[in-house]
């Protein structure tokens, strides 16, 4: 009969013992942050499952039901060519949130790589990357966005690239700063002494610690991208119709008459933007508190 040897040192796994487990635990104690996370989750689910909730398509027009305030048939009313605004709101959410996600991801990818290279290798590499960061950070944000839209057109990929290019330096700086601090720590010296390769040191030992801060920044970054997209749509440069985005939908409110008489055009998207941005900010703050409780905001 085989006897399975049991390690005498085996301890019952308590998730609180792991780094991320700790973070999750502290996060869950923060009620505001949890509520925001839940709200965001609901909004996200609504955006994904909108075809199942609503019988209308985002482009279906009903000419005889234009400009109708919210009623039983159209929960959020219709716009000036008869499209159902409830459906459009959540399809727009897909685009706005999707853009925010992609921009933040690209931004973090570039930022983390550049930042780690700069922090790790120092010297000329560091100097060059820092100068590069300054170049991108010195551009007057909105005006450069507008300029790039003029040159390369107004499509979604251009928008994503522009926003990512203008904001990766911030991530790079955070990463670089963290790496500089961690690099001096003793255990890194130990790694070097042990002969572990550069790449391994970067990926396995430094990055996980930096990642936490990057994630906090990313959450806050999502909020900022949503706001930027709104501003760009106002200036006529964001995603162009007929694709709806939250910024696009709010654009109708440029007219004082619309603000006065047709509140259902702009209040729902406005609220959607406002709510998501606040929630992202709260979640980001909550994460930051959970990761580093000494850094009380």
């Amino acid at each position: 009969m085989e006897i399975k040897a049991r390690s005498p040192l085996r301890v019952k796994r308590d998730f609180r013992q792991s780094y991320w487990g700790n973070v999750a635990y502290r996060f869950s104690r923060n009620r505001l942050a949890v509520a925001s996370f839940a709200t965001l989750f609901i909004i996200l689910m609504a955006c994904i499952f909108v075809p199942m909730i609503s019988p209308y398509h985002m482009e279906s027009i009903a000419m005889n039901e234009r400009d109708v305030p919210p009623n039983a048939k159209h929960w959020l009313g219709t716009d000036k060519i008869g499209r159902d605004l409830f459906t459009r709101l959540f399809y727009a959410g897909r685009i706005s949130l999707g853009i925010a996600l992609v921009v933040t991801t690209v931004q973090c990818l570039i930022g983390v790589s550049m930042g780690s290279l700069a922090g790790f290798y120092g010297g000329i590499v560091d100097a060059f990357i820092m100068r590069l960061c300054e170049v991108f950070l010195s551009f007057p944000f909105l005006i450069v966005c507008v300029t790039i839209a003029m040159v390369f057109g107004n499509s979604i990929p251009v928008l994503i690239l522009t926003l990512a290019l203008l904001s990766w330096p911030t991530v790079a700086r955070i990463v670089r700063g963290q790496i500089l601090t961690l690099r001096e720590m003793e255990y890194m010296e130990a790694c070097e002494a042990l002969g572990i390769s550069d790449v391994r040191r970067i990926f396995k030992h430094l990055l996980p610690n930096v990642l936490a801060y990057v994630i906090v920044y990313a959450t806050l970054g999502m909020a900022s991208v949503i706001l930027t997209e709104t501003s760009l749509s106002f200036l006529g440069l964001g995603v162009s119709p007929p694709t709806p985005t939250w910024g696009n939908l709010i654009q109708d409110a440029r007219d004082l008459l619309v603000i006065k008489n047709k509140w259902w055009y702009w209040v729902p998207p406005g609220l959607a933007i406002f709510l998501s941005v606040i929630c992202f900010n709260l979640v980001g703050d909550g994460l930051r508190d959970a990761i580093d409780p000494k850094m009380k905001r």
Partner: peptide, 22 residues
């Protein structure tokens, strides 16, 4: 402060315009 950093500029501007100016 949370509201302040979450509010789209032009939204706020148009609201103020409507309320205070008109």
């Amino acid at each position: 402060s949370l509201v302040g950093i979450s509010m789209p500029t032009f939204f706020f501007g148009l609201l103020l315009l409507k309320f205070f100016a008109v």
